[in-house]
Design a protein around this nucleic acid. Structure first.
Length: 590
RNA sequence: AGGCCCAUGGUGUAAUUGGCAACACAGCUGAUUUUGGUUCAGCUAUUCAAGGUUCAAGUCCUUGUGGGCCUGCCA
C-alpha cells in the first residue's frame, strides 16, 4: 500500500507474520467472496482492500470467488458489476477467479463422506418443525425423529434428493452435531436444501444446493486460502467452519479471522435497503452518485486511490464502528488537490457589467492548470465586458470580514484584473439582476504597480464566451449520521412542525383516522430532501473539451467530475466534494 | 434470559505486549497565499466503573455497566 504511511501492524497482520515466521505458511492466500446478489458498497470496498492489500503486502495471492450457492437470488448482472468494481479499486485476481458453484460436485462428495461417517442425515421435517426443534437462545433444542437413520438410508435419500425425486422443502441434509449446543450454529445445521431453480452458472444441473456454512470453508480449503477474513457476524460460525475442516478430508486447513465491517456516517450498507432505495425510486439507480455503492462512489468522482487511502486510514479492528464521512472526503481532496486540473465555473451566476470596458472587449489571460505544478501547463481565460460571478460573491451590505465584491469594494477577478462595484440593478421584487463595476486598467494580470493588496479574489466566467452545463450538487442522502436511527414516536411521512404554536389539538377537526397510529417510522424518514440540487452553471471555455469521467477542481468551489449523462453539447457535471470552507463555517456561526 | 465478541479524545486507530497515552480526521488559533483552497506553525480534548495483583496496569484477574451479533431450508 503505497498510500499508507508506515504504521503499526493490525491484528491480522500480526497473525500473518506469526504464521510466516513459524513456518505454518510460506506464502499467504486471501480472497474476496461476494455473493452475486447485489451491488458492492463501501463496506465491501474495505473487505476488498483488506484482502487484496494483505496479499500484495506479503507477496501472496488474492482470489475473487463468487459465493453463488443460492440460485434464487443470484444473477450474472451482479457478477459483472462486482468484477468491474474490484478491478476499479485496483485489485487484480489474475487467474484466480472462482465460483463456489464450481465446487458443487466436490461438496456433494464431502456430504456423502459425512453421511458415511454418521455425521450427517437426511431430515424429512418441515422448515417449521426444524425451527421449532432447534430450541432458542436459552433452551436447548430437541433431536429430530429422523436423526438416527442408517448411513445407507441417508445415502439413498441424499442421492434421490440430488436426482430430483423430492420437491422444494421436502427434505434437507443436516449435520449431526449437538442439539443442545449453546451455539445455535452447531445444532445440527442444514447442509443442503432442495431448490428446483435455475442457477446462473450451473443451469439445471442441480436441484440441491449447499448452504453457506457447508460451502465457504471447504471452498477456502480447495483454493488453499490461508487466512479467510470475514466480518464479525460470522464469528459464531467459526466453530462450524472448523468442524467441517476437521471432519472432512480437505486438502488444506484455512483459518477464519473476523474483523469489524466498515461503516460510514450518513450511509447505509444493507443490501436490502439499498435495493429498496433503487426499486422505490428514491435514487436514480445503483450508481446514483449519492449511493454508497462502489459504482455510485465512482460516478460521484471518487478515485480508487482515495478509497484505498480511506480504508487504510480507517484501520482494522474488532469493534463495531462508524467512520466519519469527513475522513472519506479528506482522502478524496488530498488525492485530487494534487491531480486535478483547475478550472473555473460559476454555479449560481449573477451578471456583472464592467462599465468602463468597450462592448467588444476580449482580453485573454493565462491561467495555470495547477497553482503549484507549472508542468501541468496552462490554459487561456477570456475576459469580456459582461461576466458572471457567483451570486454569493456579492453583497450589497456586507458584514465585517467579507472580502468579496460589494459596493465600493475592490476584488480581484482570478487571473485577470481588479474590479470595484459601483451600482446594482434590481427587478421588481428587489432581486439583484445585474451588478455594475469598473475595472482598474492598471490591474491587468492581477496586480497593480502601486502594489496595493486586494483581499478578495473571486472566480468569474465570461457571460458571452462560456460553456453552459448542468451542475449536480450533492449532499448526504440521509440527514442523520446513523440513517437507521428512527424516532419511534414520530410516524413516517409526518410533516414536521405543522402547527407550531397550536395546542396539541385533541381531535379538533381531526382528519378521519386515516393514519390512526403513526407507522413505526423507517430509515426512509431520514432521507435528505436536499441531497440533490441541480443548477444551470457556466464554465470557462476550456471546459468545452471535457469528457465523461474527467475530474476538475472548480476553483473555490470543489472537485467535480463529468457525469455519463453528458451528451455532445450538453455537459452534466457532478460535485464530488466541496473544498474546505472556513468562511462558510465562520459566516454561519454569526 | 443463554452463548460469543467488544469497550482508549468528538470520530477512527496506536501504545516497544506490564514501563512517561500517541497518530490521523474533525474542531479552534495564527502565518503564508492571485482559490476564505493548498502549505506551515500551534491549541483543545482520551484509557466505561469498582475492586484486586504489582515498585509500576490502557494492558493481567474479578465483578459490574454499556454496546454488537446469534433462534433462515440467506450469505
Amino acid at each position: 500500500m503505497s498510500e499508507s504511511e508506515s504504521r503499526s501492524k493490525n491484528f491480522i497482520e500480526e497473525i500473518i507474520e506469526a504464521d510466516l515466521a513459524s513456518g505454518k505458511h510460506s506464502t499467504i492466500v486471501t480472497r474476496f467472496p461476494p455473493e452475486p446478489n447485489g451491488y458492492l458498497h463501501v463496506g465491501h470496498a474495505m473487505a476488498i482492500c483488506l484482502n487484496g492489500g494483505l496479499a500484495r503486502e506479503y507477496n501472496g495471492r488474492f482470489h475473487l470467488r463468487f459465493d453463488d450457492t443460492n440460485p434464487v437470488k443470484e444473477e450474472m448482472e451482479y457478477v459483472q458489476s462486482i468484477m468491474e468494481d474490484v478491478k476499479w479499486l485496483g485489485f487484480d485476481w489474475g487467474e484466480n477467479l472462482y465460483f463456489a458453484s464450481d465446487y458443487f460436485e466436490q461438496l456433494f462428495e464431502w456430504a456423502v463422506h459425512l453421511i458415511k461417517a454418521g455425521l450427517a442425515y437426511v431430515d424429512d421435517s418441515s422448515a417449521e418443525e426444524i425451527r421449532e426443534m432447534r430450541g432458542n437462545l436459552t433452551e436447548p433444542g430437541r433431536e429430530s425423529p429422523f436423526r438416527n437413520r442408517s448411513a445407507d438410508e441417508n445415502l439413498d435419500l441424499f442421492e434421490r434428493m440430488r436426482k430430483g425425486e423430492f420437491g422444494n422443502g421436502e427434505k434437507v441434509l443436516r449435520a449431526r452435531i449437538d442439539m443442545t449446543h449453546p451455539n445455535m450454529n452447531m445444532r445440527d445445521p442444514v447442509l443442503y436444501r432442495i431448490a428446483h431453480a435455475h442457477h446462473h452458472r450451473t443451469g439445471d444441473a442441480w436441484c440441491i444446493y449447499p448452504m453457506y456454512d457447508f460451502a465457504h470453508g471447504q471452498s477456502d480449503a480447495i483454493e488453499g486460502i490461508t487466512h479467510s477474513i470475514c466480518t464479525l457476524e460470522f464469528e459464531e460460525h467459526r466453530p462450524l467452519y472448523d468442524w467441517f475442516i476437521e471432519n472432512l478430508p480437505v486438502p488444506h486447513q484455512p483459518r477464519q479471522i473476523e474483523f469489524a465491517r466498515l461503516n460510514v456516517t450518513y450511509m447505509i450498507t444493507s443490501k436490502r435497503k439499498l435495493l429498496q432505495l433503487v426499486k422505490e425510486g428514491h435514487v436514480r439507480g445503483w450508481d446514483d452518485p449519492r449511493m454508497p455503492t462502489i459504482s455510485g462512489i465512482r460516478r460521484r468522482g471518487y478515485t480508487p486511490e482515495s478509497i484505498r487511502e480511506m480504508t487504510a486510514r480507517a484501520g482494522v479492528a474488532k469493534r463495531n464502528k462508524i467512520n466519519d464521512l469527513a475522513l472519506m472526503e479528506f482522502c478524496l481532496r488530498k488525492d485530487l488537490e494534487e491531480k486535478a486540473v483547475r478550472r473555473i465555473a460559476v454555479l449560481d451566476p449573477v451578471k456583472v457589467v464592467i462599465t468602463n470596458l468597450p462592448e467588444d472587449t476580449r482580453e485573454v489571460y493565462a491561467g495555470p492548470n495547477h497553482p503549484a505544478k507549472p508542468e501541468m501547463g496552462e490554459r487561456e481565460v477570456v475576459l469580456t465586458r459582461e461576466i458572471f460571478i457567483e451570486r454569493d460573491d456579492f453583497m450589497e451590505d456586507p458584514p465585517k470580514k467579507y472580502f468579496r465584491l460589494a459596493p465600493g469594494q475592490e476584488v480581484r477577478l482570478r487571473y485577470a484584473c481588479y474590479i470595484t462595484a459601483t451600482d446594482v440593478v434590481k427587478d421588481a421584487e428587489g432581486n439583484i439582476t445585474e451588478i455594475h463595476a469598473t475595472m482598474d486598467p492598471e490591474s491587468r494580470g492581477g496586480s497593480t504597480p502601486d502594489g496595493r493588496r486586494v483581499k478578495g479574489t473571486i472566480h468569474w466566467v465570461s457571460a458571452t464566451e462560456n460553456v453552459p452545463f448542468e451542475c449536480r450538487l450533492y449532499e448526504t442522502l440521509f440527514t442523520k449520521e446513523d440513517p437507521n436511527e428512527v424516532d419511534p414516536s414520530t410516524g413516517s411521512g409526518q410533516a414536521p412542525s405543522t402547527g407550531s404554536g397550536q395546542a396539541p389539538s385533541t381531535g379538533s377537526g381531526q382528519a378521519p383516522s386515516t393514519g390512526s397510529g403513526q407507522a413505526p417510522g423507517t430509515f426512509l424518514d431520514n432521507l435528505n430532501p436536499h441531497s440533490l440540487e441541480i443548477t444551470k452553471a457556466f464554465g470557462e471555455p476550456a471546459l468545452a473539451a471535457a469528457s465523461v469521467g474527467e475530474r476538475f477542481q472548480f476553483e473555490r468551489k470543489g472537485y467535480f467530475c463529468v457525469d455519463p449523462d453528458s451528451k455532445a453539447g450538453s455537459l452534466v457535471i457532478n460535485r464530488s466534494v466541496g473544498l474546505r470552507d472556513s468562511w462558510g463555517k465562520q459566516s454561519q456561526r454569526s
